[in-house]
């Protein structure tokens, strides 16, 4: 039983990263109509920025949690202003190729300077150690990642579904021309939305640094699974991407316990099954 709970926890942790990343992808896709293949590289940058902040600036984890998403978010907004915005109205394929190219360049640069091995990032003092829950031992940092990710996901959901700013976003997703004709600076909103989606990826990167180390290809490995998650959940829905993210993490964890041989493929098998039954994904609208 201990092993089952341990795998469940691993599943929830992975699910947290899947949810944060696929949420960002959904937000970006909704507003920019771009499938952001640079997402994994930006996640990796989040972890590296946290690493630099600590080792070059002496800035600790807690500040990195705030600063890294802002710094990487600004980098993302520069990408949007200088490149992505010119893709408006073009086929998805162009956005896919451009963001994939950006991902390769960013990862290449980091690999050039840091090789492929991982750099250590210590768990902050306040979150060291663990708790004995009776039925299992819970490393505090891992519990923190799950809870904090869930809170961030729900806050993002609330922002988009329940606030006036979110109403602008949803309306501009449907009819940007009309929203702009009401007096809203839609181009600026698009830039900020990309920054938000990228910031969520960077936040996931910071959260993951103490667990998975900091590696140039950490995002490249993860993003493939995240895209399968997105395909399963469908691109259209904010809550859908959160739930699918956590659910698939858990399913993966359970598979590791019950049938370890399939644990690396279960998400992709599910993706194929969902595509066969409902090509737009479980909660999705047509792209």
């Amino acid at each position: 039983m201990q092993a089952l709970y341990a795998q469940l926890l691993v599943g929830l942790i992975n699910g947290s990263f899947y949810a944060l990343l696929s949420l960002g992808l959904a937000v970006i896709f909704g507003m920019l109509n771009i499938i952001n293949f640079a997402h994994g590289a930006l996640y990796m940058m989040g972890a590296f920025v946290a690493y630099f902040l600590l080792n070059l600036g002496g800035i600790n984890y807690w500040f990195a949690l705030l600063l890294a998403p802002i710094i990487v978010g600004i980098f993302g907004m520069i990408l949007e202003r200088t490149m992505l915005k010119f893709l408006t109205g073009l086929d998805h394929l162009y956005g896919l190729l451009l963001t994939f190219g950006i991902a390769l360049i960013v990862q290449g640069v980091f690999q050039n300077y840091f090789g492929s091995s991982g750099l250590p990032y210590a768990i902050p003092d306040q979150l060291r150690g663990g708790m004995n829950l009776g039925f299992m031992f819970l490393p505090i940092y891992r519990g923190w990642v799950v809870v904090f990710s869930l809170v961030v996901c729900l806050a993002t959901w609330y922002l988009i579904e329940k606030t006036q700013l979110g109403a602008y976003l949803r309306a501009a997703t449907e009819n940007p021309t009309l929203v702009r004709a009401f007096g809203i600076n839609v181009p600026r909103m698009i830039t900020l939305t990309y920054g938000l989606g990228v910031g969520l990826a960077a936040l996931a990167g910071v959260l993951s640094a103490p667990i998975n180390q900091v590696r140039p290809l950490m995002g490249a490995d993860l993003i493939i699974v995240v895209f399968a998650v997105v395909v399963i959940g469908g691109m259209g829905s904010i809550m859908g991407s959160i739930i699918t993210g956590f659910a698939l993490g858990v399913i993966e964890g359970l598979t590791k316990y019950f049938y370890p041989e399939a644990s690396n493929t279960v998400v992709f098998v599910l993706m194929v099954l969902v595509l066969l039954v409902k090509p737009t994904g479980l909660t999705g609208r047509a792209a």
Binding site: Y168, A171, T173, F182
Partner: peptide
């Protein structure tokens, strides 16, 4: 130009 992803109140309150 009524927005499907907004309810009537949100549609009404949308233009700043």
């Amino acid at each position: 130009g009524i927005f499907a992803s907004l309810d009537v109140r949100e549609n009404l309150m949308l233009p700043p």
